[in-house]
Amino acid sequence: MQAAIKVMVVDDSAVVRQVVAGMLSATPGIVVIAAVADPLLAMERMKQQWPDVIVLDVEMPRMDGITFLRKIMSERPTPVVICSTLTEKGAKTTLEAMAAGAVAIVTKPKLGLKQFLVEASNDLVSTVKAAARANVRRLSPRAEGAAPLTAPVKHTADVILAPASGSPRAMAQTTERVIAIGTSTGGTQALEEVLTMLPRVSPGILIVQHMPEKFTAAFAARLDSICQIQVKEAETNDRIVPGRALIAPGGKHVLMKRSGAQYMVEVVDGPLVNRHRPSVDVMFRSVAKAAGVNALGIIMTGMGDDGAAGLLEMRNAGARTVAQDEESCVVFGMPKEAIKRGGVERIVPLGGVAQEIMKQL
């Protein structure tokens, strides 16, 4: 019989501690070993029993969550889920926590907190369970993010974009190649490793990283500051050109369009697809239709199956397709499902992804 997941909740809000600890304790296979108000109290309890997962706030008295997280990751790497308020200011602070090695972000509103946490209980439980399986020893001290809590409805890409019918003219081969990358849990650290390896002259890239809406702009700006290529949050009519990577904004879907010989981005609203917005499946389908054989699709570390169907559509449209290997993934869910469905042509370690991109020049 599998041992229960031991969880510690560290948050200065008594409401958060009460609601989160209650919903997790009510879940078979999870036991909350402590719910404390700050990191110093947490460290005292951890001397008695070490948790499998820590649900951690960022701004707390006596010691902030980032300092506590860095201490944990240096002494005894443990999966940490950051529970942070969704604000522009908080995004930068939370990204620091992600850089210290956390595996997921759970966003909490300023108002209606108790109702939000109760309504999102299934997704919070899923996030904690995924964190317990995360291979945190593979996390380097870089940026990390995950999908926000979402409703349990699961749509397919059909609600945003119809599947391709016949052979679209976009499948005609051109000299310009485009790259589409989809990732989730563990993805922001993986993206940092890949994008910082690319030279200034590299193929144009469109990225979906599951991340809350207030966080993607800060994430893109951080990558732009450390990469040779330009990295920015995608906006409608942005061109996908060599030397630039565009990151789908949180809370929106992103589509690739073709205008003559140029590839463009369209940012659209719409329902959650595979419980995500942006959805990797939506992006991959649009790339299959717009670019066909001129594209390379890459699916990397992440929980769930978003992107698996879309990558198969890309491969069927003549695109090259690559998946990150299990050994280098924090969570192998998304690549594993894409491989299972037959959408993956090559499986490579994280360190080989940049080389696959440069082969497209």
Score class of each variant (00 low, 15 high):
R138K: 13
A130D: 09
E144R: 12
A151K: 12
K129F: 08
A134M: 10
R137L: 12
A134Y: 11
V128D: 07
T156S: 15
R142Q: 13
A147S: 08
L149V: 05
S140E: 15
N135A: 14
A147H: 04
K154C: 10
K154S: 11
R142A: 07
A151L: 11
I160P: 01
P152F: 10
A147F: 04
A130I: 05
L161H: 02
K129T: 04
V128F: 10
E144W: 09
A131I: 02
V153Q: 13
V153Y: 11
D158P: 01
K154N: 11
A151H: 11
A130C: 07
R137S: 14
D158Q: 10
L139D: 01
R137M: 12
H155C: 08
A147I: 03
A146G: 14
D158H: 11
V159P: 00
P152E: 15
P148I: 04
A146K: 05
G145R: 08
A151W: 08
V153W: 09
T156A: 02
V153P: 01
A131P: 01
R137H: 12
V159R: 00
A143R: 09
R133W: 07
A131N: 04
A147R: 10
A157Y: 03
K154A: 11
S140V: 11
L139V: 02
R137E: 15
T156P: 02
A134D: 08
S140N: 13
N135D: 15
P152S: 12
T156L: 06
D158L: 06
R133T: 11
D158G: 03
I160N: 00
G145E: 06
A147D: 04
V159A: 04
T150E: 08
A151D: 13
H155K: 14
A131K: 06
L139H: 04
V159F: 00
S140D: 12
S140R: 12
P141D: 03
L139I: 05
L149D: 01
N135I: 03
A146C: 07
L149A: 05
H155G: 02
A134N: 06
G145S: 15
L139M: 15
A132H: 11
P152C: 08
K129H: 05
R138Q: 11
D158F: 06
P141H: 09
V159Y: 01
V159T: 11
K154T: 10
R133E: 15
L149C: 03
